[in-house]
Design a protein around this nucleic acid. Sequence first.
DNA 1: GGCTTTAGATGAAAGCTTTCAAATAGAAGC
DNA 2: GCTTCTATTTGAAAGCTTTCATCTAAAGCC
Lengths: 352, 352
Amino acid sequence: MANMKQIAKIAGVSLGTVSHVLNKSAPVRENLRKRVMDAVDAVGYQPSQLARGLRLDKTNMIGMIIPDVTNPFFPAVVRGAEDVAFANGYRLILCNTDNDHSKEIVHLNELRTFLPSGLIVIPSNFSDLTAQAESYRKSGTAVVCVDRLPKGWEGDTVTADNEKGAYEATSYVLRQGHRLLAMVMGPRHLTNAQDRLAGFKRALHEKKIPIGPEYIQEASFDQHGGYAKTMLLLRMIPRPTVIFAANDMIAFGALLAFREAGLHCPEDISLIGFDNLQFAEMTSPPLSSVSQPGFQMGTTAAQILIDRVRGDDGPAKHLILETALKIRDSVAPPSAISAQKSPSSRRGKLSK
Amino acid sequence: MANMKQIAKIAGVSLGTVSHVLNKSAPVRENLRKRVMDAVDAVGYQPSQLARGLRLDKTNMIGMIIPDVTNPFFPAVVRGAEDVAFANGYRLILCNTDNDHSKEIVHLNELRTFLPSGLIVIPSNFSDLTAQAESYRKSGTAVVCVDRLPKGWEGDTVTADNEKGAYEATSYVLRQGHRLLAMVMGPRHLTNAQDRLAGFKRALHEKKIPIGPEYIQEASFDQHGGYAKTMLLLRMIPRPTVIFAANDMIAFGALLAFREAGLHCPEDISLIGFDNLQFAEMTSPPLSSVSQPGFQMGTTAAQILIDRVRGDDGPAKHLILETALKIRDSVAPPSAISAQKSPSSRRGKLSK
DNA sequence: GGCTTTAGATGAAAGCTTTCAAATAGAAGC
DNA sequence: GCTTCTATTTGAAAGCTTTCATCTAAAGCC
């Protein structure tokens, strides 16, 4: 591959001049400039990002650390980030942690040696990011945290309005007449799971609807967790008339559980999810869900990052993006249930 | 960040010795080795990948170029690749092309300047990869092509057995008694689309079932394409009794079209997909589909790449991974259709 | 004990860029 | 035409690693 030295030779100028032309770091007379550019075009020269990074103490790379690309919510975030990164000349190094904070640490340590301009992180469980980010920032690398926050985090964040989204979803099922709600929440130590729970509770509280702690089940944010905990909930007496799944994967698991229990949704039991994955509209029944702007979370995070790289050193930013309730067919008024299937004994409890 | 010079100073040895200890590139007496390692541990030294890459003319990065992470089939491939890459000390730079070959070229040109060890590419439409890869290989960078092949490609490949998978799916619907088949194929210029079409045709040919060209519709590999072309097929007379969708996204589009046309699947019309996406089991009805080992395609590609980097210079490898037919509920015998809904006039044509 | 051999350790160079101090060329002024 | 600036241009150094030719010191041999 061609290097600047060769360009300099072809153009008959010094190394420094080539650099100045390329970076506009000093005025260069037009004729020289042209000779340099011609040489660049002639050999298709492209500067070595490695040498550049080494010299500048910073590369055009952005480390993107996420739990798992295979989890359907994350690709949109990644894509959003890649889009604005790419548009601004940055490239993404993708790292999966599997939510394992020791794997996260490995990535964090290794990424440092690439001198990335910044890091976009969806923290793992029990993430140690706060401490690590400190040292990153010291060396001038921006870190922005997306979707959920590690303990003690005070830096830039981009999250969805989980609390409000959950509140609205819950209010919606309440308006549909449900009074016996259950939630399959995400892992308690995850801030987004906490916020969704908080929104759920606020809506209930506001309408003075009591809920027993056994109607709030914790599960991992996946189909398996959703299935298992829904099974549990279905056996409770009285059985809840609606389940709020803390994300769509959990909701899909719930749907599986419904199917296995011989319950029809929404006739026998209603369900509402969170994330509004692409497939929510394809399920049976189409799943009502709180839409979360994954792509936009990615673009926003990347944009903040790039602003930081370019010198913005204002106070920490905390962007909270709006959610939107997508109503489909998985929630029906509970009256339908009682009318159709519930034993009257349960109806009594329901109406209380 | 600490560098080797500091380690050398702390350990009281020369720069070269530190390097030899770290890389085991020369024997070093135990006491010195220990002093070096202690110093390394003390400051938490990690070698600069940039300087290393610059010196070695090769980094531990692998460029992964795909159409779009947001397309549900690709994350598994990415994840598979990342897993074995990571396990072997390599890192992935993720690039989305949106199937735009000019964007692909930009990535290809830029990635070069990182001196990656290799490239794993799912080529874009009309990809120029063949020419570019030539020049990459000249500079010692391995390139392996996944899922589909660009024109004239002769290097390493990892693909699914698209032809056989499609053949088996088609044979299956044939065994179910269908005689009036239609296919919504993928873009004709994509090798995987071609292969799936070929398998489809082979199965028909083998059973001597004729098919009019209008029953084979070309669509982009997405929901929108599937929807539009299915709508077209539904209007044909006679109407096909089963649609083979060249991938699950197309199948989801078809399902949407069915719904809109007021047709029930599989009672009124059967459907079979390809990819066996995670969500195929959640659709209504659960979608029968040809399972493609996306994750394994990723791991295999990365493994081949790493073997190449480590010196394997044997002839080009062409790995073809097995597919498996996942039978769910979207295909039923056509008799049910005729019995239930078809006007008798159509039944006559069907039986021909 | 003196000399050869060899294992081990060292310092410098190279890989490619940016930047800074220093040098040069051209222009302006008289 | 010569001096003094100013506007450009230049060459070298630095950033961090690996590697190679050299050098040192210890071991082996007679």
